[in-house]
Every structure is written in structure tokens, then in C-alpha cells.
Design a binder for these strands. Structure first.
Lengths: 336, 336
DNA sequence: TCGTAGCATGGGAGCGCTTCCACAGCAACG
DNA sequence: CGTTGCTGTGGAAGCGCTCCCATGCTACGA
């Protein structure tokens, strides 16, 4: 089952058979028909290696993901599922690497196995030197989430600032003024942006930023607990957690303090992935659509590897507020 | 930077250069030295497509995973991370497919892109026809978890039966006799095996199986809640949940009923992955080591695609009981 | 009628590598 | 001294495909 056999069986040359199989227009209907039928009848499958060698492209995209996002939080799963779905729809295959070994080693592995047409790099953080190596490497690269320092990179980005504003706007709309926040690790650009959005929204509503209502977390549930315990001392009526996991942690701290959600404290999260367990009450959150991100990032990569003008591409994906029952108006009377 | 350039630079033929780069013994030390130095100096990276075309193998393994295991539970993440780590250590790359589209389409995609040397298929369940298509397809295949019906397949399997016995033995050892179980979906062979182990362990201890202490779940937290609510009517002093997620659900039902863990009801789970949030009290569970599974499955695949005797390979990986604080002796007095 | 443009097609080179085969050189043997 | 066997090496054939170029053909206008 090679192209030659298909060609022979259908009485055309290999060239023509190849054209048909690659969707070239310049073939007579008759020839096209015969080739397609022949290919079908012998169950022909093109040899990808040969095609790749001859054409110089493989239809394989690489996806690089820090392992911790796969094993320690739900983000990686969502990214993988979004990217794989989008890639397959576009006739691309996905090769996956996790940066679990020494970063250097992974980068070398990726480059050494340079069969991919391009690279998708998820969640770059400050201090991830390997990301820069990849960016400056030989193949086109797209990041998911903006890079902390570099601006000359193709990026598909979430509107973190806008999302945080949505969250705070919602709380202000309910009547809250003492709105706390639990931030993520500021080395991560998305965490920084969510904080930035929080600050901007407060300012837009004429609410002064109170440093005591800002607590740093690290995106983990337990860091959310700790942060919330600290915040509760300053009696916020609402809290915006920079991700859902910390919001879950906040739930716990609020419960331990004997307070109710949302009557005593409203909680808003960020991300909106299913995290395998539904908190009680259901969490109001800002949802980012990683399926859409997957689509965009694959499109951008294909575009970047298709053309040779090395213009930097940049797409921002919107988010939406999902109102559930963890938010409500603040208590009117003085807190108990 | 082609092999020819390396050869020319080091003054040997392409054949010799190829031998050196592929670790062939039959090369003089002198030639090896010169080739390696030359390759290094021009930063030579072999063209995988060419190598693959010429040699007939690609050093790429395919990993096929039902999407739901990635987005709805932590299993998929663990499998991916285990397989990728093991594969990369063995100089193999991983191409990932999720069965999110119509299964048929995915299978066709996989076969059409037949560049992989072999296939790893995770978590086959009853009714997954696509698994059989893959098994009977053209490339060597290894399953993670036994197939519900087929026995003529390479498999790396978890000792589910043994794990369930460990759990029940532990509870019996603490003095429990009224031990309930929450099963998984019996269409999944692992769920069936865990139930089978439960039954066997009870029998081994001379405890009669009480049908009222068996409730069916579906591996989800909420199914665990529902199952536990039903079970509590029959006053078990302990429960073995067929996975950790349902154990978390059981926690909730027990709490709602106003009972304490482990004083009133002991709980044992199964899996032992980090599921992004630690339950309180920490869950005693049976841990399966998916990193080890990854190693084995890649080894088996390499072995299966290396030799041409089509003997079916089969490996079972052990599990271990992790004792934490969700289990304790039953209350001596009558329940409140 | 001829020249020319446009189209479908086939021929063939070549992508970069592996691997079979042949061969040269050398040591050891009878 | 010729034969044998071994080792290191190079030549060359391909792996299956893409794609450039040349070719033959039809249709058109001059």
C-alpha cells in the first residue's frame, strides 16, 4: 500500500495520485475519482515519515507543559484537552512533553526530536529559563499565557485583568465595599494581571485600596485557607480569590471561623474548570474557556509556521462571569 | 547539518557516520571520535523523518485516553505524566490522542497517522468498541488495565483484587465486621475487580456478604454521597469506597448524618493520587503507583514492537495500603 | 493555418537517512 | 605461501513521498 500502488491501480502517475490525495485542484474529475476509489479499495494510508521528509512538514505540533500543572492542579488537563481537540480537528497530531526532568534535558529532547512543525508552550512563569530557550529555538513557538518579560513572542492570552474587574464589579454591584483578594504567585504573569485587575476595578469604583485586604497565596487550596484566615481579621464582606482552588481554601477558613457564605462573606473565584468536586455553596467564578484557547493557539501556530514574515502574533481570549450562590449582598446590620 | 556534512567534516563515509551516531560497535575508536566531534561542532541533529523512513521505526509511541478521564477525574493526568516520563527516559516521544470526537473518527485519525511504533491504550471499559479496533489494528498495542473481555492483549494491570483485600483486611484487623462498600461502574473491569476483592476478603475472614452493605456508584464524588446515604441506613461501621473520589463523597454523607470519621464510620479509598485537595481527616487508601505503571507499559510496548513473536505480554503491578486517619477501631458501645 | 496560452499529466530528482553488500587489509592457520 | 576469517569501511540502493519541470493536448485568436 504505497502511493505507487494506488497510482498503478488507477492507471495514473504517482504525481497525479499525490495531487489527488493532497487536494490539488488541477486534476480531472475522472482521474480524481479513479485514484480515490483505488486508494479506498486497498486501504491506502500515506506514510507520514516519507511525506514529512519530502515536504519538510510533519503536521505534528509539540505541546510543552510544566508537570506541576498536570499533577498539582486541573489547569494542565484542561490545556491538554483543549489543544488536542483543536489540533486534531485541524488535521494535526500532538506530541507532548512535560518538563519534569531537568529543564535543560527536556529542551534538548525537544530540539533533538525536531520533527514537530511548531511548539505550544503553556503557562510560562518567571524563572522558567527553558521557555526562553524554546522561544529562541529553531521552530515557531506560541505561548499560552503571556510571558513575564518577553514581548516578541506569539501569544494566546486570557483577559485576566478584565476577568478580575468582572469579579470585583459584580461584588460592588451587590453592595460590597470591603472586598479582599487572595493573589496567586506574582511570578506568574496571570496572577499579577488578576491582581492588577482587582486594583483597577476598586479604583474605578472609587474604593481605596486597603493593603490589609490583600493576602498572597500560591494557587493551592491550602494557601487559600491560610490567606483567608489572615484576611478575616480585617472583616471583609467579600473576597476575590485569584483561582478556584484558593477559593475552595477560603471556604474552609470561613467555615472554621463560623461564618456563612454568602451571608457573611461572598466569595468569587477564577478559572471555572470542573475540579472534580463541587463546593458547597456553588462558587461564583470567572470562567476561562480553555477549549477556545486551544483553538486559537493551534490556529496561531499554524499561521506562524505557514507564513515567513516573522511578525509577532497576539490573541486575547475573553472570560465570563458565572454567577452562582457564593455571592450575595453584604449583611446590612453590623457583623456579629 | 546533515549526516553527509558530518561525514565529510570528519573524513569518513556516511555509513560510518551513521554507525557512530547509532551506537554501532563495529567502528574504530579513531573514527568514532572524529565523527562525534564533528557532529558536536556543527550541532548536528538527525532528521527524524528521514531516519524513520529509512529504518521503519519512529521512536514515537501513541497514548490513547478517553477524554473523560482527563477532564472528569485525576486518573488521566496521572497516566499521562507516568507514560510521558517513562517514554522520554527511554528515548521515545509521546503522541497523544483523546477520544473526544466520535470514537470512530479518533481511531481513523490514529491509524491514518500511522507514524507511531505502537499504542498505549488507557482504561478500556466494556462497550468501548474502539479499543477492540485498536487492538486488532496494524500496530502493537498495550492496555493499561485489563480488558473486560479480551485476553489476547498485552496488558499492564493493577492488582485491584489484592488492593481491595488489603483495604478490607485492614478494617477487619481493626475489629470491623459490618464493612460496607461503594462500588464503581461495573462495566469497568477495575471496578469489578475491586468488588471481587472485597467479596473475597470478607469470605476469607468468615464474614457473610450482606447485600444491603453494597451500593453502586460511578467513581464520581456525588455518586459517593448518594451511595453512602443509602448505606448509612444499615449502620456499617466502616466503608470501602472503590475510589478516592467516592470516598470524599462518603465523607460528606457521613458528616451530613452527624457522624464522625473514624469514630463512627471508618473510610478507606482506592487510588491514592493527589486530587488537588486533601480531605479532612486524611484518607486511608490503597495507592496505585502510576509512575511504575508508566514504566512497565512503555517497556512492554517496546518489547512487543521489538520482537516478532506475537506472544501476549502481561504485567501486574502491586498496590500498597496507605494508613492515615480515616480508619480506626469501631465504637465499642452501641451506636448513638 | 499557425502560434500561443492553458490545462492535465508524467518523469524524475531528491528529501536525509539506514542498511545490505562488497571489499581491503590484516592476522592466524595449515 | 596460499587460504580462511575477521574487522572496519565505503558504495549504493532504497525507504515513500513531494514537487519542479517538461510534455502533449485542446482551444482560442490572429
Amino acid at each position: 500500500m504505497t502511493l505507487a500502488q494506488v497510482a498503478e491501480l488507477s492507471g495514473v502517475s504517482r504525481s497525479t495520485a499525490s495531487r489527488v490525495l493532497n487536494g490539488d485542484e488541477r486534476v480531472s474529475d475522472d482521474a480524481r475519482d479513479r485514484v480515490l476509489r483505488a486508494a479506498d479499495s486497498i486501504g491506502y494510508r500515506p506514510n507520514r515519515a516519507a511525506r514529512s521528509l519530502a515536504s519538510g512538514r510533519s503536521s505534528i505540533v509539540g505541546l510543552v507543559l510544566p508537570t506541576e500543572h498536570l499533577t498539582a492542579d486541573p489547569y494542565g488537563s484542561q490545556v491538554i484537552s483543549g489543544v488536542v481537540a483543536a489540533a486534531n480537528e485541524r488535521d494535526q497530531q500532538v506530541m507532548l512533553w512535560l518538563t519534569h526532568q531537568g529543564p535543560d534535558e527536556t529542551v534538548q529532547t525537544i530540539f533533538r526530536n525536531g520533527i514537530v512543525d511548531g511548539l505550544i508552550v503553556a503557562a510560562p512563569a518567571l524563572g522558567d529559563d527553558w521557555v526562553e530557550e524554546l522561544i529562541d529555538g529553531p521552530m515557531p513557538t506560541v505561548l499560552i499565557g503571556r510571558h513575564p518579560t518577553r514581548r516578541d513572542v506569539n501569544v494566546v492570552d486570557i483577559d485576566d485583568v478584565g476577568g478580575a474587574r468582572l469579579a470585583v464589579d459584580h461584588l460592588v454591584g451587590l453592595g460590597h465595599r470591603r472586598i479582599a483578594t487572595i493573589t496567586g504567585n506574582m511570578a506568574r504573569p496571570d496572577a499579577a494581571a488578576r491582581y492588577q485587575g482587582y486594583v483597577a476595578a476598586l479604583e474605578a469604583h472609587g474604593i481605596a485600596l486597603d493593603e490589609r485586604l490583600v493576602a498572597a497565596g500560591t494557587y493551592t487550596p491550602s494557601s487559600g485557607v491560610a490567606a483567608m484566615v489572615r484576611l478575616l481579621k480585617h472583616r471583609p464582606t467579600a473576597v476575590f480569590a485569584a483561582n478556584d482552588q484558593m477559593a475552595h481554601g477560603a471556604y474552609e477558613a470561613i467555615e472554621i471561623a463560623g461564618l456563612r457564605i454568602p451571608e457573611d462573606v461572598s466569595v468569587v473565584g477564577f478559572d471555572g474548570f470542573s475540579s472534580f468536586s463541587e463546593p458547597d455553596p456553588p462558587l461564583t467564578t470567572v470562567r476561562q474557556d480553555l477549549a477556545a484557547i486551544g483553538e486559537h493557539v493551534v490556529d496561531v501556530l499554524l499561521q506562524a509556521s505557514g507564513s515567513d514574515d516573522h511578525e509577532t502574533l497576539r490573541v486575547t481570549v475573553g472570560v465570563e462571569l458565572v454567577e452562582r450562590s457564593s455571592t450575595g449582598p453584604p449583611a446590612t446590620g453590623p457583623p456579629p
